[in-house]
């Protein structure tokens, strides 16, 4: 154990190294580490937030999808209903039109029949007169017998 000047030499050296470390080493490294810690924490926070946002967006999207589906289903229902209605209306119209046409046709037929009857009647009258003319030959007065024949024709 020989204590000598080395003791003080070491003390001075010690002081210098501690000063150096305090000035140029420790704050820089610790600063960088803390900054990085902050950055990582921020990053994790951001990731969490993004996760939450994603979750929310997903649920919102699902909601919207559901709504859209419901709406679509409603629209389809309505459309179906309307289509049925239109078809029904068309049916009713068609039936009505058919009936109307039938009635018209029947009326026309009736008319035709009547006309045919009339025509037939007049023709029959002519024929009867012609026949009678033939039978009676020229002696009979056309005008005097005409009324008789017409009366006969209406009775047909």
């Amino acid at each position: 154990m020989n204590i000598n000047l080395t003791l003080f030499g070491q003390m001075v050296t010690f002081a210098i190294f501690v000063w150096f470390c305090m000035k140029f080493v420790w704050p820089v490294i610790i600063g960088a580490m803390e900054e990085r810690q902050q950055k990582i924490a921020d990053g994790l926070d951001a990731a969490d937030r993004a996760m939450r946002d994603l979750e929310a967006a997903k649920s919102e999207a699902t909601d919207q999808m559901k709504e859209a589906k419901q709406e679509a289903a409603g629209i389809v229902d309505q459309a179906n209903k309307r289509a049925n209605q239109i078809v029904d209306e068309a049916k009713v119209l068609a039936v009505a039109e058919g009936d109307r046409l039938k009635v018209a046709a029947e009326a026309e037929i009736e008319q035709e029949i009547n006309r045919a009857k009339e025509e037939l009647r007049s023709k029959v009258a002519g024929l009867a007169i012609a026949g009678a003319e033939k039978i009676l030959e020229a002696s009979i007065d056309d005008k005097a017998n005409r009324a008789l024949v017409d009366k006969l024709a209406t009775q047909l």
């Binding site: 080395t6 190294f17 150096f20 140029f24 080493v25 820089v28 490294i29 960088a32 580490m33 990085r36």
Partner: peptide, 25 residues
């Protein structure tokens, strides 16, 4: 003793200073 002690101290300072300079986030 002094030479080795100072030499090792300088080594310590050099290594750590280099790390400090290179330290990034």
């Amino acid at each position: 003793s002094m030479a080795w002690s100072i030499g090792l101290g300088v080594l310590f300072c050099w290594v750590f200073r280099r790390a400090a300079v290179r330290a990034t986030t």
